[in-house]
């Protein structure tokens, strides 16, 4: 495949990842959120595979398959089951209203483009233009964690941040060493399990997954 074409496809996928990140910011329904997260994982996995193919870094295929199986299939499935078990059908509750969140998100994207401009000048990798998107995805994930009340959305925000980091790794340096990626993948899996257990605990303790309730745990003064 021609490198130029690959770079274009990659840029397109980066755009899709950014779009899903924004989609998650506006999405009000829990199931929609999980689906968007799965889509983001899928784009990430394809992008990784393409980068691996073009750069000849074959361990990226393994990363890609891991991403596909973990972030597209397994984690959304776990979250799905969790939502069904805990009977969360409510809409996503936000602290800051959606248009405002969007505006902040756009500001963050501009900010990350501004930040990575010097890197784009220096780098010769074909993926260099997507670094800004990766950074923006990380920041948007963090923004999502800040602006949402519900514990499950916090988790999805956290996982989206991880997606962004992963994407940054592939776009900036053609991926981390395989050992590191395996470790990270395992960490994510275990984090998901732990979160799942905690959700049940929080749910039984507070009768809700609204993390506002946890403010009660604070020391009195």
């Amino acid at each position: 495949m021609h490198t130029n074409l690959a770079a274009q496809i990659n840029s397109f996928l980066a755009a899709m990842i950014l779009l899903t990140a924004f989609g998650m910011l506006v999405q009000r329904r829990m199931y929609g959120l999980i689906h968007l997260f799965a889509w983001q994982g899928l784009f990430l996995s394809i992008s990784t595979a393409i980068v691996g193919f073009v750069a000849g870094a074959h361990h990226l295929y393994i990363s890609s398959i891991l991403t596909l199986s973990l972030k597209v299939i397994l984690l959304p499935y776990i979250l799905h089951v969790l939502i069904q078990r805990l009977k969360i059908h409510k809409e996503v509750e936000t602290i800051v209203n959606v248009p405002m969140t969007m505006l902040i998100g756009i500001a963050l994207v501009i900010f990350s483009y501004h930040l990575t401009a010097p890197v784009r000048e220096l780098s010769t990798l074909m993926t260099r233009s997507t670094l800004a998107v990766a950074l923006a995805t990380v920041l948007l994930g963090l923004l999502m964690m800040i602006t949402r009340k519900h514990a499950v959305t916090q988790i999805i925000g956290f996982l989206a941040m991880e997606n962004g980091l992963f994407f940054a790794a592939t776009s900036a340096t053609y991926g981390m060493p395989l050992v590191v990626e395996l470790g990270v993948a395992l960490d994510i899996l275990i984090a998901a399990f732990i979160f799942g257990i905690f959700f049940f605990q929080i749910h039984t303790t507070f009768d809700s997954l609204d993390i506002e309730q946890m403010a009660r745990l604070k020391e009195e003064d």
Binding site: F111, L115, M145, I146, K149, E212, M214, E219
Partner: peptide, 24 residues
């Protein structure tokens, strides 16, 4: 300093968010 400890996760997240932005 104790007033920083709001007990709300979002506030803690904002702390780290602002820190990251400032560092960047």
């Amino acid at each position: 300093v104790g007033k920083l400890q709001q007990g709300r996760i979002q506030v803690y997240l904002i702390y780290s968010f602002v820190t990251i932005i400032i560092l960047l």
